[in-house]
Nucleic acid binder design. Structure first.
Lengths: 286, 286
DNA sequence: TCAATGCCGTAATTTTCGTTACAGTCGCGC
DNA sequence: GCGCGACTGTAACGAAAATTACGGCATTGA
């Protein structure tokens, strides 16, 4: 057994890959990225499979591992296995950081990951499950139409939710942002319809106004807002307050999206067979 | 490719091995022991190595995996890799929290929070900062127009990014989903323009086609995709692979959004005074 | 003690995999 | 616009791996 080139990268092959990213060509970088995104499983597959996954040719993968300093693909795989073994041997050594003090190696993007995580955790911790279930129940009531509306930035969230909801139940309508159309859409709102509104600071006047009018017409409002709470909360039947702090001049909508996805999943689950069949039928139509 | 013998032992191959210990012969049991004590690394090695480690012959190992029901050694390895992948995809960020054992007090919403956190962390950990900076640089180049496009669900992300980008720099255009308009929008793409595309599975044919045509016209493509990588990556100059796993039949876009927001913030920061002034001017217009 | 059954390893075979040579192509700079 | 160089995929080659055939050997029961 020959001791291979001493890539004495005790830390991690993954780090070695990251450190070498600069020396790689474009296609090779794609291979590297696939490896990192699915580490280490991707590298344990045969070359052809790895290459196909990264949408590059096998030789490109070979050149990639050669540039990293390995003697060949088998050598590379062997070291991956050894690392895997060593890692699982010691209980949870260190998934991410190693010992050092809080030294943000990547001073710009890491704070964003941390903020996003904090926002999601902070939001869900304060999200009452009763509220959550009640909203799901509301969204599953097919006798009600569902209307979705957002502000300047959060309109995208309304669309995202509408796209999913429309697949699992009928009568889901996104209210587009063009103010001119809003008067018309108000007329479509029947009593007991559901209006899901996204409104974070600075709370848009027109959005708030639309919500008020809708409430006056008897719609039930579900409001997604930030921790400082939109004035619409007075009219809302359910309020979901999300954390939006970010190291930026913009607020973050990550937590909002996480809640939206949880709702989508819950509704899909709750509708069960009905949703399954509807999705199936819709796919046939394409 | 044929779906292999459905060992739908979702839980773990290791359990399957343990359950089968009774049916094995003495030598085969040695192989099983070695596999279990060095799980799963031992099974990912070539047969000869595995056999040597267990002090048995290669055919014995082969008979062992055959008895477990696999179609062959490669099939066995493939399933080991898949399990490894699925396992690392949900790293259960924190061991057991305060309050003792893993008691999901809120069995429905907590898994979503955890998945979202894992996705964000997994995505950013493998996001090369060089790539990130290069994309920011590209987005700040005001000589290039920026076009944004998404698929059925990810169109919302494209809109979200467009809404922010449009505030800090000119020539930002969202390409709406109506297929009829796409031909026209292609003509607007000039050489060296930037096309930012969102495409997660199942990769939409029309989106991929648009990206290909755009690339052919000389546009530089920034692709946001999932860990399985859209086929568009071949044409893309930059690929951002995000984790999208969720305890649901839908994939999660939380990590994508987190990256988008980080980019937005970085671009705003990078444009500095120019962006500040532009935002100011736009507010005056309202 | 002998025969039969079933386990196991050696060795040959076949398939797949990793590797490398080569040619096309893309981008870059003059 | 035109070469030049570098990057990338195709295809052929060689090597190693997985698989199978076969024969020895141990164990068991008569």
């Amino acid at each position: 057994m020959i001791a291979t080139a001493s890539i004495d990268d005790r830390a991690s092959i993954a780090e070695h890959v990251r450190a070498s990213l600069g020396r790689l060509t474009a296609q090779e970088r794609k291979a590297a990225q696939v490896l990192l995104t699915n580490y280490p499983a991707a590298g344990l597959a045969p070359v052809a499979e790895f290459a196909e996954r990264a949408r590059v040719s096998a030789p490109t993968v070979l050149r990639f591992v050669a540039k990293l300093g390995y003697l060949g693909y088998p050598d590379f795989q062997r070291q991956l296995r050894e690392e895997l073994e060593a890692q699982l041997a010691s209980p949870l050594a260190k998934p991410s950081r190693k010992g050092g003090p809080r030294s943000p190696e990547r001073p710009f993007i890491d704070p964003f990951a941390e903020a996003a995580v904090a926002n999601v955790q902070g939001t869900f911790r304060n999200l009452p499950e009763d509220d959550f279930s009640a909203i799901v129940e509301l969204m599953c009531d097919r006798r009600r139409s569902i209307h979705l509306l957002g502000g300047r930035f959060t309109d995208a969230l309304a669309r995202y939710l509408a796209a999913h909801l429309g697949l699992v139940r009928p009568d889901v309508r996104h209210v587009p942002s063009g103010v001119g159309l809003w008067r018309d859409r108000l007329l479509d709102l029947k009593r007991r319809d559901v209006l899901m509104i996204f409104d974070i600071r600075r709370y848009q006047d027109d959005v708030v106004a639309f919500g008020r009018d809708a409430a006056a017409r008897g719609a039930e409002i579900v409001l997604f807002t930030d921790q400082w709470i939109s004035p619409l909360s007075r009219q809302a039947k359910h309020v979901v307050a999300c954390r939006v702090a970010a190291p930026s001049r913009w607020d973050s909508s990550v937590a909002l999206l996480a809640v939206v996805e949880a709702l989508t999943a819950a509704v899909t689950e709750r509708l069960g067979e009905f949703a399954r069949k509807r999705i199936e039928d819709l796919e046939k139509l394409r």
